[in-house]
Design a protein around this nucleic acid. Structure first.
Lengths: 184, 184
DNA sequence: TATCCTAGAGAACGCTCGTTCTCCGAGGCA
DNA sequence: TGCCTCGGAGAACGAGCGTTCTCTAGGATA
């Protein structure tokens, strides 16, 4: 594996699990087994490493979601199924983007930007999922985004065994919102 | 004003606006005008100050919400109206509890605990709001909690002028969820 | 074999952190 | 007036931060 890749893998795990500011560059060096000199050749600053972490997390998170959802007959239900699985994973600790924004958003334009881009990508994906099926796909995409981020936040602070509850409640809400109109 | 109160007021503002780890005790001292010695007499450690910040934020946030909502004919709509106002306030930066949890939750049992208590209080309040009006108040309270936390997260990362959109979308979703059954 | 270049290990640097300690001056009391 | 206590200002401390620098060992080349 390339040095940059090893650094990024180690950093991503540490940043997500413990928070960005709680992790020093020396810990990234130790976890990746890459010398500090080379680490700074790959990523010239901690902020650059953080941005790379978020960008890669965006790619992987989105492609895991879309890989699970695409082709399903009820894609909205699949989204919340996928969420429920994610919430149950070892080391789940909420939305890495929201956490990074809360921690660093006040200081770093670059972090704000990459978080915003991720949410925009997710919103666009949801929009595509419901376009044609509902009368106002923009509104419904926004609602689904709210449900996803809300379920993630609630699952984060809930005790482990209750995390799935948030996903299921959000899934039922999503079903109600996207259901075809019942009026004649 | 008492020393402890001045410290807490200054710390709350700084912690919320910039994040906990970004603010040093010396900055709290400077902003509060209280000497470091006295500051440590009031709060024996930074963690104690953070917990006090979250506890007071819980009290004030909840009482602002309940003060706005209680007595309204449509309390659920009022909740999301209140959210929309909050999102528009200067210095709004998402949920202080979720942000603190993301930043410190991995390190501090006390922070995890106080955040969990706040969400539990909010869930209980929402439960009371919908009890009697819906068939499954536990589920609906959970859904409203998800919508509130989701709207808050989306509003945080959205550009200023778009923050209200999240509140309105969540409010419409809440209305759909809590509406009396339309079937005959 | 002698010389150069590279790269890794980790020491060093300047800074900031949370926390403690020292100093000094003001005010109460005999 | 002389003494004593209190509290404020901020220096000090040890640790850890992000980042840079030095030193050394090894391999490639002539």
């Amino acid at each position: 594996m390339e040095h940059a890749e090893r650094v990024l893998t180690a950093a991503a795990d540490l940043f997500y699990r413990r928070g960005v500011r709680a992790v020093g560059m020396d810990e990234v060096r130790a976890a990746s087994g890459v010398s500090l000199k080379r680490l700074y050749q790959c990523y010239p600053s901690k902020e650059a490493l953080v941005v790379a972490y978020l960008e890669r997390r965006d790619e992987r998170w989105m492609s895991s979601l879309t890989g699970y959802v695409d082709g399903r007959t009820d894609p909205i239900a699949a989204v919340f199924e996928w969420l429920e699985r994610w919430f149950g994973e070892d080391g789940f600790r909420g939305c890495g983007f929201v956490n990074a924004y809360g921690e660093l958003g006040a200081d770093s334009d670059a972090v704000r930007e990459v978080v915003r881009r991720h949410k925009e990508r997710l919103r666009a994906y949801l929009h595509g999922l419901v376009a044609g099926a509902v009368t106002d796909p923009g509104l419904v995409a926004e609602q689904l985004l709210v449900l996803i981020d809300g379920a993630t936040a609630v699952a984060m602070v809930s005790p482990r065994e209750a995390a799935a509850t948030a996903a299921r409640a959000a899934g039922l809400a999503a079903a109600a919102i996207t259901a075809p109109d019942e009026s004649p």
